[in-house]
Write a protein that binds this DNA or RNA. Structure first.
Lengths: 202, 202
DNA sequence: AAAATATTTAATCATTTGATTAAATAGATT
DNA sequence: AATCTATTTAATCAAATGATTAAATATTTT
């Protein structure tokens, strides 16, 4: 029953937790060391610097985040099923990692370069473009730019996680209220997307 | 032709600029002093501390942000015109202040208390609730929770500003592309919202 | 103009923070 | 077991940072 977790891994997990919650600038290497229960020198022993450790953490965060959509849009599901899958999977993912959306969005503003390598899956966008064009030619859906389609989908899905404190206050909602609202959005968002896109509901 | 701007004001303007762009933790008082072209001691002379200055800046940011929606939802416009106004005004506002959405969202995570005083306009939400209920009873729109309505509207409008770096990379868009996409959303978002809500398009 | 008050400035302080060092300990290899 | 390598630790460093001080300068009041 030995916990098979190395110091190196412990540090990365702790770093992910603290960086994700507080952001790069507000995170102190000592916060990470404390969270990981290790000496601060071990952090540098394994990862050299705060910056290098951060790059690893944000790289993995972006990778995971990106993988979900790439898998869905490269799948053989019909468009309306892709939409549903997208919403369900990301709402579940963000519910399990509530600080991730704001972390990714915040830090990607300061790391515009780092994003390049990870976030670019041309296949995903090419597939999406083809599919939207084809369905429009077949008079199944209205004409829409892939960027607009994608923005609609991800905006409706991700923003409620980003703005939870704001919306909760403004709307006077409890945490439970908010969970229930998010659950309802698993159906509402696809309904709205499909209602807008399709000439006849599939 | 004298520039009638006091040191005190210069500092606040500079602070707003730097805080908004870099966030609280990454902003150094010396950054603000340099941006304002003043001695660092003047900052403390007028505002006592970095924290106090920050509270003023974020307070004004939240106030401006909130005022726009309160004005619209407390107006006498019909719902579909409110939607259009909301989208147009916020897209213009965020275009002029591109760092504001992410600043508000990021810092409101760390300042959940500060939000209370500023962001709560019960009138706005009460009006919205009443209007949605009434229009539903009149069989003009489908039934929808005010929170879901509001989330849809603000998500579609604000998120594209938050995620500009991410989306630009993923979709391979230039800055000009993005400006044009945002402009198109002034029509697309109300179309989508109204299409979903109204049984018959108004 | 003189005195009083307000503002600006350079210098400095104490703490925090990312990083390093060198010694101690643990683990592997011979 | 003895030697060598890898890991962990306490102590420390240098730079950065929020804040203050006291003197210099500007502005207002008398």
């Amino acid at each position: 029953m030995k916990a098979e977790i190395t110091t190196e891994e412990k540090i990365k997990v702790a770093a992910a937790k603290v960086f994700t919650k507080k952001g790069y600038a507000a995170t102190k290497t000592r916060d990470i060391a404390e969270e990981a229960n290790i000496n601060i020198a071990s952090l540098h022993y394994y990862y050299r610097s705060k910056e290098k450790l951060f790059q690893i953490v944000i790289g993995e965060a972006l990778g995971t985040f990106s993988q979900i959509m790439d898998d869905i849009f490269c799948s053989e599901l019909p468009l309306h099923e892709k939409i549903k899958e997208f919403v369900i999977q990301y709402i579940d993912f963000f519910s399990a990692n509530p600080y991730l959306p704001i972390f990714i969005v915040s830090e990607s503003q300061n790391n515009p370069d780092k994003i390049n390598k990870i976030l670019k899956n041309d296949q995903t966008i090419m597939n999406l473009r083809k599919e939207l064009e084809l369905l429009h030619e077949m008079k199944v859906i209205r004409q829409i730019q892939p960027a607009q389609f994608f923005l609609n989908l991800i905006s409706l899905t991700a923003f409620p996680f980003l703005a939870k404190p704001l919306i909760s206050k403004k709307m006077d909602l409890s945490d439970n209220d908010y969970v229930s609202i998010l659950a309802n959005r698993k159906k509402l968002i696809p309904d709205m997307m499909i209602n807008f896109l399709y000439y006849e509901q599939p």
